[in-house]
C-alpha cells in the first residue's frame, strides 16, 4: 500500500500545508554589498563577529538568526516543538552549539548546502503529521570556516578557477507553524543522491547539477504539473555554470524552464564582486530564500515557487581517496498564503 500523502515516486503533499510564519537572516559584509544586500535583516562587517574564532562567529550568527525568527513569529523558545538545523562544519558544530544554547528538542541535519530545504521538507512533515505545532529551522555557513575545512587557509595565495564558487557567510532561521498568516509549503520532493562521476572539488556546480535536474524532473512527473505552473523555479547554489548544466539536462529531457529558472548562488553576488561562478554554502540558499524570495512572495511578485536546495556531498578525505563527489537536491513548493 502506498503511503497516504505520497504521490508518485518521491513527492509528498501536505493535507494542511504548514505556514512559514517568520524568517530572519544575517550575512557577512560581501553579501551585504551584493545585489540582495537590502533584503537581509542584519549585516556583520567583522568576519570574526567579535568572537575568538570564525567557527564561533558562524555559530553566533546562526543562534541570532534563529532567535530573531522566533521573536518575529511572536513566540518564545518554549513554544518550539523541534529545532532542525545543520551546517557544513565537521560534526555540524554550529548547529549543535546553537541547540545547546537554545535548549529546544533538536534534530541535527546534514544535507551539505541543501540543509535548509531538507529542514523545510522534514519540518513540514512533522507539522502535517501532527507531531509539532511549531518547528524552528536554520542553516549557516562562513567563508573562512568552509575554506579552511575544504580547501586552503584564507590568506594563502591561490588563483581560483573561474568556475569556483564563493562560500556565503551568513545564517538564516525560519519558523514553520501548523496555522497562521504567511506563505505555505504544499509539497516536498525528496531527492536521491546522484553521482555522475564528477571529481573536481572546485567545480561544485557540475557535481550538483545532475541531482538538481533529477529532483526537478521527478517533481514534475510525480505532481503531473507542467513547467508553466511555476512563476519561479529556483535552485540553491549551482552557480553560473551549474545552472547552465542543469538547464541543459532538463531541456534534453523535455522540460524547458529557461524562462522562470533562477539560482540563489547567481543572485547573491554581482559579477564585479569577484565571486567567479557565484555563491555556495548552506547559507546561500538559506539567506536568499528567507530574505529575497519570501519577501517577493509576500509582495505578490511570485505566487507559485519551486525551491530546490542543492548540496555537493564532498569531504576532503573522500576526494583525496579518489571518490567522486555526488550531489543531492530537495525540492519544496512554496505558495503565497
Amino acid at each position: 500500500m502506498v503511503a497516504l500523502k505520497k504521490i508518485g515516486a518521491q513527492t509528498r503533499w501536505f493535507q494542511n500545508p504548514p505556514v512559514i510564519l517568520a524568517c530572519a537572516t544575517i550575512v557577512g559584509e560581501k553579501e551585504g554589498m551584493g545585489p540582495l544586500g537590502h533584503t537581509f535583516d542584519k549585516i556583520i562587517t567583522d568576519s570574526h563577529y567579535h568572537e575568538k574564532s570564525w567557527e564561533k562567529a558562524e555559530q553566533r550568527m546562526l543562534q541570532e538568526a534563529m532567535q530573531m525568527a522566533v521573536e518575529r513569529a511572536g513566540l518564545s523558545l518554549k513554544d518550539i516543538d523541534f529545532m532542525l538545523a545543520g551546517d557544513l562544519l565537521n560534526q555540524i558544530i554550529s548547529a549543535n552549539y546553537t541547540a545547546r544554547n537554545l535548549e529546544v528538542p533538536f534534530i541535527g541535519l546534514y544535507g551539505a548546502c541543501a540543509t535548509l530545504y531538507e529542514s523545510m521538507a522534514l519540518g513540514a512533515m512533522l507539522i502535517d503529521g501532527g507531531f509539532a505545532e511549531y518547528v524552528l529551522i536554520g542553516a549557516c555557513s562562513h567563508y573562512a570556516t568552509a575554506e579552511r575545512q575544504y580547501r586552503f587557509p584564507v590568506e594563502q595565495g591561490v588563483q581560483r578557477p573561474l568556475y569556483a564558487q564563493w562560500t556565503v557567510t551568513g545564517a538564516a532561521g525560519m519558523v514553520l507553524a501548523r496555522q497562521g498568516p504567511g506563505p505555505v509549503i504544499t509539497h516536498a520532493t525528496i531527492g536521491k543522491v546522484v553521482d555522475l562521476g564528477q571529481q573536481d572539488p572546485m567545480n561544485m556546480g557540475a557535481a550538483m547539477a545532475p541531482a538538481a535536474a533529477d529532483t526537478i524532473m521527478y517533481h514534475f512527473v510525480d505532481t503531473g504539473r507542467t513547467t508553466d505552473y511555476y512563476d519561479l523555479v529556483v535552485t540553491g547554489d549551482l552557480g553560473t555554470y551549474g545552472k547552465e548544466l542543469a538547464q541543459r539536462i532538463l531541456i534534453n529531457n523535455g522540460y524547458d524552464i529557461t524562462s522562470c529558472f533562477a539560482d540563489c548562488g547567481v543572485l547573491i553576488y554581482a559579477p564585479e564582486q569577484d565571486a567567479h561562478a557565484g555563491g555556495s554554502g548552506c547559507a546561500c540558499s538559506a539567506v536568499v530564500t528567507c530574505g529575497y524570495l519570501l519577501q517577493e512572495i509576500q509582495k505578490g511578485h511570485y505566487r507559485h515557487v519551486l525551491g530546490i536546495g542543492t548540496g555537493a556531498l564532498l569531504s576532503p578525505c573522500s576526494s583525496l581517496q579518489g571518490e567522486n563527489i555526488p550531489g543531492i537536491a530537495h525540492a519544496v513548493v512554496i505558495e503565497a498564503g
Binding site: 590568506e155 594563502q156 595565495g157 591561490v158 588563483q159 581560483r160
Partner: peptide, 26 residues
C-alpha cells in the same frame, strides 16, 4: 599577499616568498 597572488599566480607562488606565504597562512 593573497590579493597580489590572485593576479600574480605562479609568479607569486613559485618563488621563495610563495613558500613563506604557504607557512604563514596556516
Amino acid at each position: 599577499y593573497d590579493e597580489i597572488a590572485k593576479y600574480g599566480g605562479a609568479g607569486t607562488i613559485v618563488p621563495i616568498n610563495g613558500f613563506a606565504n604557504s607557512m604563514v597562512s596556516p
